[in-house]
Simulated assay, not measured.
Amino acid sequence: MSDGAEKVYLSFHKSFVKENIPYIDRSTGEDRTFNSVTLPSDTVIDGRNVGGFQFSPLYIDPSKYDENQRVVPLLANREVWLTRTARDADGNVPLDQDGNPEKETLKVMPMAIKEALAEARRAWSQQHSRERSLQERAGTARNGAGTMRREGDRLSDRDIPF
């Protein structure tokens, strides 16, 4: 990727990312690899749930801040082709004329994916924060800290003085 191009950085948990998947190039016979990213469920772009759609980025980098996160740099002005295996109303996979599973394809801009991921994370966070109030979570933390302090006092009785 050229350094002068504007980029959009998407971050995913490592469970949504598969790196260096081997395949054999049909035209040259060479062993090659590709990357695949699956969008999390409840990711909505233009009113459509695109959870389960996949794309193949050229680069995937480890996050500097969290070892369980992966960062995908994409060019901001280039569409991303999202694909997934099509299913009919009964959940069966329809086949094309060649007997291969039909694919659904969407073309979206990287910024749309970034905004959809941010909204999905925000919704998930709000849903899970309602399960316990802040006061309940603080009480749990206080009780845990009190237990640690009491255990620490018992240990300090046995410390060797210097």
Rank of each mutant, 00 (worst) to 15 (best):
M1H: 07
G4M: 08
A5D: 08
E6F: 07
Y9C: 05
H13V: 06
K14T: 14
F16L: 07
V17P: 03
V17D: 04
N20P: 05
I24T: 14
R26M: 11
E30P: 00
E30Y: 00
D31I: 01
N35Y: 08
S36K: 11
L39V: 08
D46V: 11
G47L: 02
G51K: 00
F53V: 04
Q54E: 13
Q54G: 06
P57A: 10
P57K: 07
L58H: 03
L58T: 08
P62F: 05
K64T: 08
Y65I: 10
D66L: 13
N68H: 14
N68K: 15
N68W: 13
Q69L: 14
R70N: 05
V71T: 10
V71C: 06
P73G: 04
L75F: 10
L75W: 04
L75H: 04
N77G: 09
R78H: 15
V80T: 13
T83N: 12
T85V: 15
A86Y: 12
R87V: 11
R87Q: 13
D88G: 10
N92D: 11
V93R: 13
V93H: 09
L95T: 00
D96M: 08
P101Q: 05
V108T: 09
M111T: 04
K114I: 03
E115C: 03
A116G: 00
A116H: 00
L117F: 10
A118D: 15
S125Y: 10
Q126K: 14
H128S: 03
R130E: 15
R130M: 14
R132V: 03
L134N: 06
L134F: 09
Q135V: 06
E136S: 07
R137M: 10
G139T: 04
R142D: 00
G144N: 12
M148D: 11
L155Q: 06
R158N: 04
D159H: 02
D159K: 02
P161A: 07
